[in-house]
Design a protein around this nucleic acid. Structure first.
Lengths: 236, 236
DNA sequence: ATGTGATTTGTACTATCGTACAAAAGATCA
DNA sequence: TGATCTTTTGTACGATAGTACAAATCACAT
């Protein structure tokens, strides 16, 4: 009942809706959900506050739409790269390819949908930290399939490591990935300028290198058989 | 001009100030800074909203005080554990001990200051994600020294790995640590109940095991000399 | 017991929040 | 051109935010 496109549907009009989405994405990813007001978003997009209500009904609806726009393409891209990675013959090379397939789409930069991986991933990191309900729901039901697919693929390359350990390590990977996008300046600072935390290519290479090694670590059961006890006991 | 302690200074009165601090810590760590109102905190602490203003002047002041309360003890604990770790003779064992010295204090649970490591670390994770200014300032000037000390100690155990790589990998460690505290349920979910993401002892062991392996990975320069090209080029 | 300073309470002020809605403006086609 | 639908604007409402401040209450030395 809405939209009656006569000739070119997705034509090029200076789309206010897109501008609002882009502005909201950037602001949410930088400052969190609650710190950003609808008026902030409208101002950044050069739009009227009422326009946001018109297009997305509520602030939650705006966030939801941002997720809807990105989840599909990003999972698709990851699936493609994963499929390609699985065809790698050498077991060691395959593991690296799989990890890279998981990491790379999260670092793409640019203004279009396919290129906004870094911004969207930073957004997910922030929403996850804030415990945002809207994000939590959509994430669990959208990304868990992909996560399982990657975990399985990694497990295939490392059959001697228990699946539980793979899950933990892939969780660490996502945490490291998130944090690299959230606080890149910390890398620059701690390296005293020798590394640039904002450089996506470096981040990817470092992350892949470190993560592959982490996945290849011996399983916890058989590790350090009788060497030392952990500092913290196993209560709680 | 405040406080006129006659006999026992830090005596046991049902301290409202402490209750407010504890409530704020928990709420901030769970929901973020902006999502929590002063009234929420007061209510959770069984106090009056005006009481918060009286003790901490502003909401920022309250957050600042939380940091002040924890930073000292936590860095002290880490320094002690680091000093002990450095005395370990075997190079491999020493690396593990150093990593454990960094990780363990961030997972302690309990209501007192020394035991609230997990809650405070989760708070730091959330503030970091939200880009909170108060937190950013105090963190950079309080934790960077400790971070450098750990990086140096790790570098001593791994002289053949460039310092830059160590920085990246320790950054990944902190990200993984943060994320484990922020979203422990994801581990339980992805492992289909086989692992408990909320179990501090498991988290520590898994994190130490994976991270030690990550640190021991070959340096980036000399890795995979002419195998495959990275997926993403080195622009930006 | 009484006075004094430290807390706690209650309430109020102003600013800003998300959202609603009517009117204006713009686009599209008979 | 004029009718109709979509989009944008402007404004307003109620709720809630952080903070201020006077009054009430408490703890305790004299």
């Amino acid at each position: 009942m809405v939209r009656k496109p006569t000739s070119k549907e997705t034509a090029r009009k200076p789309n206010m809706r897109e501008a609002i989405l882009a502005a909201a994405e950037e602001l949410f990813a930088t400052n969190g959900f609650n710190a950003v007001s609808v008026r902030d978003i409208a101002h950044a997009a050069g739009a009227n506050p009422g326009s946001v209500t018109y297009h997305f009904k509520t602030k939650d609806g705006l966030l939801l739409e941002i997720y809807r726009r990105h989840c599909g393409p990003m999972n698709l891209r990851r699936s493609e790269l994963l499929a390609a990675a699985k065809r790698v013959r050498d077991l060691q090379d395959r593991l690296e390819a799989v990890v890279r397939a998981y990491v790379a789409p999260a670092f793409t930069s640019g203004s279009d949908l396919a290129g906004g991986g870094a911004r969207f991933t930073r957004l997910r990191a922030v929403m996850s930290a804030e415990g945002n309900e809207v994000a939590r729901k959509i994430i669990a039901q959208t990304f868990d399939d992909t996560s399982h697919a990657f975990i399985d693929a990694i497990h295939d390359s490392l059959p001697h490591v228990p699946r539980t350990d793979i899950v933990w390590r892939s969780h660490f990977l996502l945490g490291a990935l998130y944090y690299s996008l959230v606080t890149p300046d910390r890398v620059s600072r701690l390296s005293r300028g020798e590394a640039d935390g904002s450089d996506a290519a470096s981040a990817i290479e470092q992350l892949v290198q470190a993560t592959v090694a982490a996945f290849q670590a011996p399983a916890l059961d058989q590790a350090a058989p009788a060497r030392r006890r952990p500092v913290v006991s196993s209560k709680t």
